[in-house]
């Protein structure tokens, strides 16, 4: 095996890791901090990708910029989703299993909705840098992955600052630990969760833009992402935003190495293996929250 090929796949895997982090940070907030197992998260990402496609085609803007424009409307969608969830399932104390069924139903609705609305075939945006590679020393790196890596890392840094430096962000971390104590601090736990779910879905809007920047999209593409995002969240430590970046990088590199040595067909199994190994050996993940 050529050393260059190995190095290149590690470097590309690292870049893909930043992309995976952007897909997973929202889930680590909902699943890890407010106990909402939103299995429909990847479906929201694909929805974001279709919206980003429409924005890009209409206004001729970059897909990543389109993803950034989706952050605000997706925040509101997240708020609405939380209000529905809290007024039905959470209030009745059926937040775990019945809630999972709700989000699973939502996932299917989103997929079917996208398939009927946008068609089942692949759609792609041919951006200026779609097939451009940059050389980095001896390595050739696809520019679209460089950009999505930068966007993913920026999103992780922004969220980490929000969660550690702002009153609302700290309250989101606190509500995961003791919601009643949060109410004794003068904060309404429902409002804090509402904000958290808004932030979570807002990241799906941005991630949609990145998915579109990286490759073609299709309505059922969330199926390819769901195992990966849960693996990244659990590997990084559920609830940890920086952990999602580390988890994403580990998954990205592992998938690329598996592709070289075992064949491309195996790369999808990597996330499942990682998920099972982490749950069995280190359930708290790389970084505890």
């Amino acid at each position: 095996m050529a050393l260059d090929l190995l190095l290149e796949s590690i470097a590309t895997g690292l870049l893909i890791g930043g992309f995976y982090a952007a897909l997973s940070v929202g889930l680590t907030i909902s699943f890890g901090l407010i106990d909402i197992a939103n299995v429909a998260h990847p479906a929201f990402i694909i929805l974001g990708a279709y919206f980003a496609l429409a924005l890009s085609q209409t206004f001729g803007i970059d897909p990543i910029i389109a993803g950034l424009l989706l952050v605000a409307p997706f925040y509101v969608i997240g708020n609405a989703l939380y209000l529905f969830y809290s007024n039905t399932f959470e209030r009745r104390g059926e937040s775990s299993l019945a809630g999972l069924v709700l989000f699973f139903g939502l996932l299917i609705l989103l997929e079917v909705g996208m398939a009927t609305q946008f068609g089942v075939g692949l759609k792609a945006l041919y951006s200026a840098y779609g097939s451009v590679a940059v050389s980095f020393g001896p390595l050739l790196l696809p520019l679209r992955f460089v950009y999505s890596f930068v966007a993913g890392v920026a999103a992780v840094i922004a969220l980490e600052l929000f969660l550690s430096r702002t009153f609302r962000g700290r309250a989101i971390r606190a509500v995961a630990q003791d919601a009643q104590a949060v109410s004794l601090m003068g904060a309404k736990p429902e409002t804090i969760r509402l904000i958290a779910m808004g932030v979570s879905i807002a990241t799906a809007g941005l991630a949609g833009g990145l998915v579109l920047a990286v490759g073609p999209i299709s309505p059922y593409q969330d199926r390819l992402l769901i195992g990966r995002v849960f693996a990244v969240v659990v590997l990084g430590g559920s609830g940890s935003v920086v952990g999602a970046l580390l988890g994403g990088i580990v998954l990205g590199i592992s998938e690329n190495i598996a592709t070289i040595y075992l064949g491309a067909g195996w790369s999808l199994a990597v996330s499942a293996v990682i998920l099972l190994l982490v749950l069995a050996l280190r359930p708290s993940g790389i970084l505890r929250r």
Partner: peptide
């Protein structure tokens, strides 16, 4: 009822 996984200062700020 402290927040055990927040720092001392973060608890105070809460």
């Amino acid at each position: 009822r402290l927040f055990p996984l927040l720092t001392v200062e973060e608890n105070l700020l809460m």
